[in-house]
Nucleic acid binder design. Structure first.
Lengths: 197, 197, 197, 197
DNA sequence: TTCTAAACGAGACGGTACGTCACGTCTTCTG
DNA sequence: CAGAAGACGTGACGTACCGTCTCGTTTAGAA
């Protein structure tokens, strides 16, 4: 006696994960984060908006944080920075690009992931893995520069990568992502050249 | 009534803030964070443990995050780093000291403050103020070195300070505070000398 | 930012039970049982209809069943049966009256209480107490008849009372409360006179 | 998968009802009721324990209650009470026997069936049918006594049967089945002889 | 000295969200 | 085509906190 007109809703497709449902959940989660803010992001609210059951969400994501991380990953950015012969420029480009990217919705999501990771070990672990992978990526950029002779061979590429990563995280977490025109260049320069006279 | 032995509890001391109560609340909050973890930290739990009324807490702290920040500030560290003639050593000392300090309870509290600031604007503002003040402090260290001629005059001291601050925050947030013996020195060196060959 | 026009809703009246709230809960529960049937009776639904919080209900009633029993008790019947000199007539009157009373809403509620008591020990205990008290009441009726010499002195008044009680319960539970005109008299007669030739 | 040892499980035997499956479901249901109590009895739990699919259960039983009733019927009691020349003794024997039988697991199951029938019309109907049939059976016992001249010809045998049935149901539902040695005799006597002096 | 005002503890209140359980329906695959 | 399997939308469970309220008590300071 349920509304027959309502039968365009999603149903089980048998004993298999329904990809439409997963997609609807991720979309709903993203929409809530952007439109209503992180305080409104709850499993309950996501389920409501996605017209999905709470158990369905819990079946696939152990916690709020891991769901957020998947929402973040779903927004695949088109990485651009092709290799150049100039480490300083590469770093500046990376900072500039990420600063712009994170000023959009993705940054709001990622902030919440970091916050959540401080409470939820499962989320912390996944975030750890992601951060390590990104760090390695930047590290390779430095290694290539090292191979070109641009970088001193006493330098630890992963530590250098962490300086880049931590600075941009820090800006994200303290709401200071907006850059003046020359800022990215200035940051990269100071990182590469050091403080020394 | 009927339980005169229970009358050793705190009472109002008239139309003034009762410092015993405030102290009891901060202590209870700290104890909960340390003994039961951040997940157990709630206004309700703090009130219960402090034998205080919830409205008493809300009267003095607008939110969870601001209470946490006060708890963090209550654990006053004995700052040590006297001025030296060696910027690299000063930075290494700072990193080493803060890494140690934050591996204790204070770091657990501060992580939660940062997380909370991602949701709660009131907390974000206070954290912003605190972070800026600390950054200024490190900036002065760099300025002194600049005055000594140790640092290039093209350097932005506050940006240098942010590199130090962001790195140690990043380690805190990703659970990687523990340092090998020479690590602090190595980090400081790479910051000061840059990557350049 | 809540609707200010909505401020005609009930509020706490301090650290004391709010009788308006209790009344609203009992009324809502009764309304649900009658209008939507026992299947729709859930703590959730009662809270919704009473515009009360679920915890408020759980604060005062440990379970579904005990709430139902209070709903039953709230519908105070005006007892009628004045003492007479005729036990058979008294019993017939009681059966007739209770049959009528239970064919209304009260009977529907009481059926559910009995059902719930089969699952919920707390409810079973309260129902037990209530049933015992009613049985004692009927027992006194028989004792009065015994004092008048109407009843054999070998009779156990409480057992007699149980026969009356169990028969009417049984009718309630098997949906056979409706009586033909002489039925109550016939039942009472057979109880009082026995089967013996 | 990868567990060939698990392949001793039941499988479809083609497009026919598999009696092993039905048996397994009834057994599982009974085991749950006895071992884990009525609260744990759910279609879900029965399916799990029987290693059956939920739709398989729904195919054959419309509801929880009807499944319970089948479980009750599956435990076939060996009726004993042969016909005698003494109605009072026959009734006492019946009460004594049923009291004992219901103090075991069967009584627990039957209580739940009665409770379920208060909510589920399908179950109510089947229970009604069963109760009527049992009542008729007792009624025949009284009719035989009537034919022997033991019982007054004004007596309604089915009403007498209902008195017996309702009393024992009432004891079951209020957890008062345990009888003292002479109790069954006393109850039967009072039923047969009535209250009258 | 009396009265007022504020802070305090306590805890009930209407809510929201939690994470779990069971419901009854659906689909796929295996035999 | 029966049956095992299990995902799905739904909705209730009982609990934890939220932030607000009213209460009665206590005390300092104003009248």
């Amino acid at each position: 006696m349920a509304d027959p007109a309502d039968d365009d809703r999603r149903r089980s497709i048998g004993a298999r994960r329904n990809p439409d449902t997963q997609e609807a959940i991720l979309q709903a989660g993203e929409a809530i984060l952007l439109e209503e803010g992180p305080a409104a992001f709850s499993i309950e609210a996501v389920a409501r908006r996605a017209r999905a059951g709470k158990p369905t969400i819990y079946r696939w994501w152990p916690s709020r944080g891991t769901l957020m991380l998947d929402i973040y990953h779903r927004q695949k950015p088109q990485a651009l920075h092709g290799p150049t012969d100039d480490l300083e420029g590469e770093i500046a480009g990376l900072i500039e690009w990420l600063s712009g990217y994170w000023q959009g919705s993705a940054g709001q999501v990622f902030r919440q992931v970091i916050a959540e990771a401080q409470r939820d070990p499962a989320c912390a672990e996944r975030l750890q893995g992601y951060a390590t992978e990104r760090r390695a990526h930047i590290g390779e950029m430095i290694e290539r520069a090292m191979a070109r002779g641009e970088v001193a061979d006493t330098v630890d590429p992963l530590l250098g990568a962490e300086m880049v990563q931590s600075l941009i995280w820090h800006r994200l977490l303290t709401d200071r992502l907006a850059l003046e025109p020359g800022d990215a260049q200035k940051i990269a320069a100071q990182l590469v050249r050091g403080l020394k006279a």
